[in-house]
Computed example of a mutant assay.
Amino acid sequence: MSGHNKWSKIKFTKAKEDAKKGKIFARFSREITLAARNGGGDVDTNPRLRAAIEGAKACSMPKDNIDRAIKKGTGELVGEIIQEIVYEGYGPAGTAMLVEVATDNTNRASSELRTLFSRNGGNMGTPGSVAYQFDRKGEARIIDETLDEDGAMELAMEVGADDVGEGDQDGEWVFVCSPTDLSSVCSGLTSAGKNVTGMRLISVAQNTVEIKDVDTARKVMNLFERLDDYDDAMNVFSNFDISEDILEQL
């Protein structure tokens, strides 16, 4: 999965650039609002909200924006009703795509995503058409440059995570667990003196589709990026695997 990991690093660099345009602020605002709506506005009892706020701060999101998003979630401020929904589809070479969306208009989102799929070499599927190819997992992120691989593995076992690997940033470690254990894993990391900089539910492909030529790789990445750039998209998951050799040719 080295190629996919490298693409993840490319996405991280792109995310920092997007922050300058305010797109990342909008995503964090929706995530904070949803977290506060579902778990309350207290960061001490709502790890999803705490992680969302930490991520927003890391991207220099203004405190006023964060406070406003929390108040929308708790009902202290009137705002649009945001719904979470997952759209499924197919990309070039039979790749599977899951698009997690937070939107105030599901009809609009459905229409716009259908157009994005069809104009970029894919087609949107029906609910359940590709979701069965993915396993739902929990993901928690920390940054600790003092940890090595052995130390990270030991910490993972202590907090109840199933696996751990290096993240997109220097010193970042990603802990993967079952969805039901995500809150306890985050609490364990916090108790161990680690600052949880991100937590979310992710979809992990059971099997990957290897992309073996540059032209197909370009088409797959283009669709993935268009979906990821969609204003209401929160996360995009796929099962493609592109080797570093092909990525370098792009």
Rank of each mutant, 00 (worst) to 15 (best):
F12T: 12
D181P: 01
S203A: 11
T103Y: 10
D232P: 00
A36M: 05
D245C: 00
E172A: 11
F240D: 04
D215W: 00
A19F: 03
I24Y: 02
H4C: 09
E54T: 12
E149S: 15
A131V: 07
D104P: 10
I246G: 03
S118Q: 14
S60A: 12
E88I: 07
N120I: 01
G94K: 07
D144M: 01
V99D: 07
L201W: 10
A152I: 02
F25L: 14
G171Y: 06
E154S: 13
G55Q: 04
R37F: 12
R226T: 14
S110Y: 12
A58V: 03
R27L: 13
S129K: 03
V101H: 05
G171E: 07
T106M: 14
I24L: 14
Y230W: 00
T146G: 05
R48Y: 15
M124G: 01
A26I: 00
K23T: 11
L98N: 00
K194I: 04
S238Q: 09
E210W: 04
L116Q: 05
C177I: 02
D144N: 13
A102F: 11
K194N: 09
K9H: 13
L113W: 02
I246Q: 05
Q83R: 04
D67F: 01
K14S: 13
Y230T: 00
E80C: 03
M157S: 14
A36H: 08
G198S: 13
F134P: 02
M124E: 10
V185L: 09
S110W: 08
N107W: 04
S184D: 15
A15M: 11
G41T: 02
E54A: 15
T13A: 15
W7Q: 08
S178Y: 05
R119F: 06
N5K: 09
G128A: 02
I82K: 06
P127H: 09
M234V: 10
I81G: 02
A35Y: 00
V101I: 13
N105D: 15
S2D: 15
T208W: 05
D162L: 10
K23V: 08
I246T: 04
A15G: 06
V99N: 08
L223H: 01
G121N: 04
D228H: 08
A26W: 01
A56F: 02
T95Y: 08
L113A: 03
E100D: 11
N207Y: 06
E149W: 10
L201R: 06
R30D: 09
A19C: 03
E112S: 07
R50Q: 14
A205R: 04
Y132P: 00
N222Y: 10
D231S: 12
W173F: 08
